[in-house]
Nucleic acid binder design. Structure first.
Lengths: 145, 145
DNA sequence: GTGGGGCTTCCAGTCGTTGGAAGGTCAAGG
DNA sequence: CCTTGACCTTCCAACGACTGGAAGCCCCAC
């Protein structure tokens, strides 16, 4: 099975498969005599594992750990659960930050007449609103299309 | 006022001020004879505007629009409100995606005994769980420290 | 044997920031 | 006056997780 077929079967693009291989997340695939990468059903299974993990928001580093645990028959479910709980806590924190932003914006928008006059409480807030203090994580957002 | 003072007064780092200037978000600052950037109180005001906007999750492109509206005395508040509402909708969408991830993970974690046995429903799901279909935005997350 | 699609590698760009190196400037103290 | 140290300047690179493209080889159907 070449990389294109593996990509279609796993839902991971060929580009990403090569990238994951190059960055060491997944082992190097075998090659045909022509130099094409060759994938087995097990490899596709692993790729689907990676894909699903990304869909659930795990980082590359976390997926690396999860893959090791997946392959390790003597693993402890506590190890996996720990990673999942950390991910949940992170999600909850980010959700809260975004909720705070949304609430502030909704309040401002509800105070804005939204007509053809220039007076705007949104701009007034941006002009003078208090700044978030700690600034360790600004709650910056993935703005991919 | 040099860039360091402007940074402290606005809450935007000197690095970011230079970056914003270079990328055209803010106008080029005047220079002293020695070549140092020179900032007025108005400039600091503008930098605080940018900082606050970033804190509220606006994109650079949106901030550019907001800055123009801020400077435009004949603006219409509807224009500002439109940008804010778009931002809110985007936030709500992202929050929902992350809520879905968190709910799935919480369900999986609650089914996981988390002990020293290898049986783990989290790994079982990653192995076989259904993939998110549309995949236009994967809900990838900013994982800045 | 030829066309078109798939495969290979490598390089660059995305976004918002942060870090560092190399060198010029300023103000205070000796 | 000279040194020290804090500040400024520019430029270059990296982060994460991809995505796109160019140049060139390979495979299969016609």
């Amino acid at each position: 099975m070449n990389i294109g077929e593996a990509a279609r079967a796993s839902g991971v693009s060929a580009k990403m498969i090569r990238y994951y291989e190059q960055s060491g997340l997944i082992p190097k695939a075998g090659r045909t005599t022509a130099g094409y990468r060759d994938y087995s059903a097990t490899d596709v299974h692993m790729l689907r594992f990676v894909r699903r993990s990304r869909d659930l928001g795990f980082t590359m580093a976390e997926i690396e750990d999860l893959l090791q645990l997946w392959r390790d028959r003597s693993r402890q479910s506590a190890d996996v659960k720990r990673i999942a709980l950390a991910r949940i806590a992170d999600l909850r924190r980010r959700i809260q930050e975004m909720e705070d932003m949304a609430a502030t914006l909704e309040h401002l928008a509800s105070c804005c007449s939204g007509d053809n006059r220039p007076d705007c409480p949104i701009l007034a807030d941006l002009e003078q609103g208090e700044l978030a203090k700690p600034r360790r994580s600004r709650g910056a957002i993935d703005r991919s299309p």
